[in-house]
């Protein structure tokens, strides 16, 4: 991450200078910083709502029931996490919300799942295999209906916007399954957390 952060900014400054857009690049620092806080603050309300809802779902045993239903899948994907952990139910809810296109609900629930996974994590600064898997599931962005895209298409007078659904679903499924397979593969070959920590402090975040 250190290198990505460094190169993102250095490349921006170099390209900005070449293209004569250096002032735009500098302005982007301010607008980007402002946007970050706006994004975070706009999350507070909806985050509080869903964390409240999830607390009720958890206490009533609903999360546990959902966790049991998808146990055969999660057992393989998150084999480091004990089956009785609330993380499993949260992950299931996060996936369902994503699939239904409820991003506002999916993010708070996903973050709660992350916190549960952090409880099982040995090195609190570095991502566990389970965390990488949850992230892979979320970055792939599996969604049954691309509602926003369809809205734009309808806006420009697309006659049959639903014809976009099937190809999109196929592509998003391919990406989603690939992400899971990749995460599982890297899990086997990537250096383990503890070894990374004790042997080579620098190579850990070479990404």
């Amino acid at each position: 991450m250190n290198y990505i952060f460094y190169f993102l900014i250095v490349i921006s400054i170099i390209f900005g200078a070449i293209n004569g857009k250096l002032s735009d690049v500098v302005n982007a620092i301010l607008s980007g910083a402002e946007l970050s806080v706006k994004v975070a603050f706009s999350l507070i309300g909806i985050m509080a709502f869903w964390l409240g809802m999830m607390k009720i779902a958890e206490k009533s045993g609903l999360v546990e029931i959902i966790a049991k239903i998808i146990k055969p899948i999660t057992k393989r994907l998150f084999n480091e996490i004990p089956e009785e952990s609330p993380a499993i139910g949260d992950i299931a809810m996060n996936f369902s919300a994503n699939a239904l296109g409820l991003t506002n609900a999916a993010t708070p629930i996903g973050l709660k799942a992350m916190e549960e996974l952090q409880k099982h994590n040995k090195d609190k600064k570095s991502a566990s295999n389970a965390m990488c898997m949850l992230l892979a599931m979320n970055t792939a962005g599996f969604q049954l209906i691309p509602a926003t895209v369809i809205a734009v298409l309808i806006g420009v007078g697309y006659k049959n916007p639903t014809e976009i659904i099937a190809p999109t679903l196929l592509v998003t499924s391919i990406a989603f399954v690939s992400a899971i397979i990749l995460a599982k593969t890297f899990e086997k070959f990537w250096a383990k957390q503890q070894i990374e920590e004790s042997q080579n402090e620098d190579s850990e975040d070479s990404l």
Binding site: A127, G141, Q143, P146, T172, A179, F186, Q193, D205, L207
Partner: peptide, 30 residues
């Protein structure tokens, strides 16, 4: 656009929420 999620944003939010700074293979997979 319909089949994608913003990888860098998800990464910052999900790992940021629990203070993870060492990503290991997460970004590469994304």
């Amino acid at each position: 656009v319909g089949s994608s999620e913003t990888t860098f944003y998800v990464l910052a939010v999900y790992f940021g929420a629990v203070g993870i700074s060492k990503l290991r293979y997460a970004l590469l997979v994304g």
